[in-house]
């Protein structure tokens, strides 16, 4: 019983990280129809910036804020320099552009930071909490609550605020949105900024547990992309559920079947789900925007 609980704790912790990354994917996709393969780079920028600032003696929370700001700035630059000029490009071009951007950012980080592995101490110490035979790190709770907070915020923002509705309107019909007076360019900038901020925040929160280095972005993006598609692209609920599901599948497979094939199990589940429901768990039908 305590075993199962430990597996669940592990799965939810890891899944919450995937979910946060997937929420970043969702944000950009909703506004622009682009799946941003450079999303993992935001996570790394957040983690590395925080690690370097903390190592320089900057207080943890200030470092965290600055790291999120750094990620946000890169997100806006990514939109302005790489995505906006390529508007209306076919899907495959957008995939190549965002992958190209991720390779570029990796190269840049290798210059700005270094090639070492970094971490800093958890925000609430390192003493594990024990309950019913299972243990959890305080930082894992930060990660889990952080992801839920991001989810709740995005859901509220997109449906309840003027700016959020502007983004949704821009996504569904750019021309019509512009005609009713929505500043579509601003809406796009905002969605990239938010997405990058979410990614960088995920990096800031997870680095004490997962560690970070300049080149882990691809793997993070792959997991986040998988979670996004499992949940159904464009749906915040889908991103959350997809992320948690993949985390749980991995930990339960590692715990009960074979740790060798835990990543394979996640992909098999994705393939099976897509064969049955080609639009993912929470996706809308006919979301094709290519």
């Amino acid at each position: 019983m305590s075993e199962l609980l430990q597996f669940l704790v592990s799965g939810v912790t890891v899944g919450a990280i995937y979910a946060a990354v997937a929420l970043g994917f969702t944000m950009i996709y909703n506004a622009s129809g682009v799946v941003n393969f450079a999303q993992g780079e935001f996570v790394v920028i957040g983690g590395l910036t925080a690690a370097f600032l903390i190592a320089m003696g900057v207080p943890v929370f200030l470092a965290a804020v600055l790291a999120v700001v750094a990620g946000t700035v890169v997100g806006i630059l990514l939109y302005r320099l790489a995505i906006r000029p390529a508007r209306e490009a076919p899907l495959v071009s957008l995939i190549i552009i965002t992958i190209g951007a991720s390779i570029f950012l990796r190269g840049a980080m290798q210059m700005v930071f270094d090639k070492q592995i970094h971490r800093y101490d958890g925000f609430s110490g390192e003493t594990p909490l024990r309950f019913a035979g299972a243990t959890i790190l305080p930082q894992s709770l930060w990660i889990i609550f952080g992801s839920f907070a991001v989810f709740v915020f995005l859901a509220w923002f997109m449906s309840r605020t003027r700016a959020g509705r502007g983004i949704r309107a821009t996504a569904s019909n750019r021309l019509a949105a512009a005609l009713v007076g929505i500043n579509t360019r601003w809406a796009m900038n905002l969605s990239f900024a938010l997405s990058a901020a979410v990614g960088a925040l995920a990096g800031v929160l997870s680095t004490p547990v997962t560690f970070t280095s300049y080149d882990v972005g691809v793997l993070i993006a792959l997991k986040g992309f998988s979670a996004t598609m499992l949940g159904g692209v464009g749906s915040p609920q889908g991103a959350l559920v997809g992320g948690l599901l993949i985390g749980l599948i991995e930990s339960l497979t590692a715990g009960y079947i074979s740790s060798d094939y835990k990543d394979a199990a996640a992909f098999i589940v994705i393939l099976v789900v897509l064969f049955v429901r080609p639009e993912g768990l929470f996706g809308k039908k006919l979301t094709e925007r290519v």
Binding site: L81, A82, P85, A86, A89, S93, L94, I96, I97, I99, G100, A101, S102, I103, F104, L105, R106, G107, A108, Q110, M111
Partner: peptide
């Protein structure tokens, strides 16, 4: 890496 990435992005744009 920076050059390779930039080439990919610029060609596509």
């Amino acid at each position: 890496h920076m050059i390779l990435g930039a080439v990919m992005v610029l060609t596509m744009i």
